[in-house]
Design a binder for these strands. Structure first.
Length: 132
DNA sequence: GAATTGACGGGGC
DNA sequence: AGCCCCGCCAATT
């Protein structure tokens, strides 16, 4: 049997623990975090969890390193992009983070297993070569 | 209780 | 890259 929390609040602490693993200069998507947390966690729940961070907790949880799948910033009025730029993350003209250079590859398999989380599946290398 | 909205995402075109 | 449709979970109207 799998214990999947019915109350999304039950995911919050696990979500914060995962977010704390993302190093400066790197970014992860809401979906990435949800996958690592596992047990039915959802990208939207991750968004709710980060939105529920108090000012105190936001000082230890790097919420700014979580962005959407397009590399765009989903928040407004929090200076998220500026903070990321200060950490070394680069953006293109359209305001999208350069995921190819800064996308976090997930926790180490050892860490994930030690803490009861799910490692991030290997992302297929994006071939940009114009064959023929 | 349907429709809508919100710090979302995958797949198809 | 962009747009659309649909699934997802929860809160609000």
């Amino acid at each position: 049997m799998s214990t999947q929390p019915r109350d999304e609040h039950e995911y919050y602490e696990r979500i914060y623990t995962v977010v704390e693993q993302v190093p400066p200069g790197k970014v992860a998507t809401y979906g990435d975090v949800a996958t690592i947390v596992g047990d039915g966690c959802d990208a939207r729940i991750v968004g709710h969890a980060l939105g529920a961070l108090g000012a105190r907790r936001a000082e230890t949880v790097p919420w700014q390193r979580i962005i959407n799948r397009t590399g765009g910033i989903s928040t407004s009025g929090h200076g998220q992009r500026e903070i990321l730029q200060a950490e070394g993350v680069t953006f293109d003209e359209k305001g999208h983070a350069r995921m190819d250079a800064h996308h976090w590859s997930g926790p180490t398999e050892a860490w994930a297993r030690a803490h009861g989380f799910q490692p991030l599946p290997q992302r297929p290398p994006q071939a940009q070569l114009t064959l023929f």
